[in-house]
Design a protein around this nucleic acid. Structure first.
Lengths: 219, 219
DNA sequence: CAAGTTATCAAGAGTTCTATTGAATAACAA
DNA sequence: TTGTTATTCAATAGAACTCTTGATAACTTG
């Protein structure tokens, strides 16, 4: 019978991936990369840490197989390694939320008062009927890197400026980075105050994309 | 806009669950618990570590929300907290295997030469037709804690003793703990040598169970 | 080729994690 | 009560991890 050492080695290898998920700083980088690929410096700036430190963490994530790396001239761009890696990150996040009551409380406090939501299935149906306007309130670069088909990009800080362009006889659905991102919440609040009918999409772009590719594969 | 501190707290909370997966010793405990609930001492013995140490690790896993704990007289029995936790563990394991070539090589070496396999869908079909014998080659306690419906328990070391009881006009399917467990491989090898037609189920009991409850929920 | 970006490497201080040991506690039986 | 078994607690030494700093490497541009 094969040695116990081999099995031990197996667990050590899996632990490498576990370790990748064990630092808040690394998770913050993953969260940013779930929206769009980025360079080391951008990531460092967005997550408020030194470039050298971000580089170290990114290398750890790369070694664990969660990220891929590619050189673009003088910059190095990291991005998620694939559907499976992204799915794993979302699962871990959701599992944490489900199990740790503290997290949920912290999230609620962070997001402020509740707003009406719409699920993925219903939004798809409404999109098919064409009686809804979908607004992506993330920064423009993230919209450029990928968005819900038919959505229109209006970063949160420009919402008021473009209010008149939005039809007032259709419902508006706002979405952003994910369930813990406050942009869409805030957008719906402002739209409602402006007298519009608005809801927030449950989840965000990474969740939508993952479910979408999953659908395509099983259709 | 809500504070950056809240978001930071969120990542810290998720990292707690990541940390739970970051030690080989803890993963070994999870692997054992994926088969059946067990007491601290059993787990310590099976994973070859001191009781105090196993207790510490189990408490960490419990704190992360992956395990539940219940007292049974003088013993404390730990078990997986639910489908989601189990699913997370299996996903992490599979993702590691997919990404780290080393792991796969180690696994192959551990399992020895390849044997023919059968997938879940095909086995279900064959079970419906009734022209297959399913054998659970894990230790009896694990069979007792849960097994594939219709399967028969023959621990690996008793395989030869019960060989005559297995029909020789039907194919035999052996399964065990999972893709990295060597029991079923070994069983199929021995059965083939004895002139029987035998295959190993892809995956093992935890995978089957998870897919099964998933089916029921969507039927 | 020199100068400027961007990313990585290398070393070290401070912190956190892990396994070990021995003592303390809880449940139970005689 | 007293003894037995199973688990947890507490303290600690050693290992591993994290962040910082300053130097180095890869590439682009003038």
């Amino acid at each position: 019978m094969a040695s116990k050492a081999a099995k031990q080695f197996l667990f050590e290898a899996i632990a490498v991936m576990g370790k990748a998920f064990s630092s808040p700083r690394r998770l913050e980088l993953l969260d940013l990369l779930a929206q769009a690929p980025r360079s080391v410096e951008e990531l460092a700036r967005a997550s408020d840490q030194s470039t050298a430190n971000a580089s170290q963490h990114l290398q750890a994530l790369h070694a664990a197989g969660l990220l891929t790396r590619s050189r673009e001239g003088t910059r190095v761009v990291y991005s998620f390694a694939g559907e499976e890696a992204l799915s794993l990150w979302l699962s871990l996040r959701d599992a944490s939320v489900a199990h740790l009551g503290e997290v949920e409380r912290a999230a609620r406090e962070y997001l402020g008062e509740d707003v009406e939501t719409i699920g993925r299935a219903e939004l798809q149906e409404r999109l098919r009927q064409g009686d809804v306007v979908v607004v992506d309130v993330r920064p423009e670069e993230e919209f450029a890197a990928g968005h819900i088909e038919g959505a229109r990009s209006i970063p949160l800080e420009e919402l008021e400026r473009h209010l008149a362009e939005l039809p007032d006889d259709q419902e508006i659905v706002a979405y952003c980075r994910g369930p813990f991102c406050a942009y869409a919440h805030e957008a719906v609040r402002r739209l409602t105050e402006a007298g519009r009918s608005a809801r927030r999409l449950e989840g965000g772009w990474p969740e939508w994309r993952l479910a979408d590719t999953h659908d395509r594969q099983h259709a």
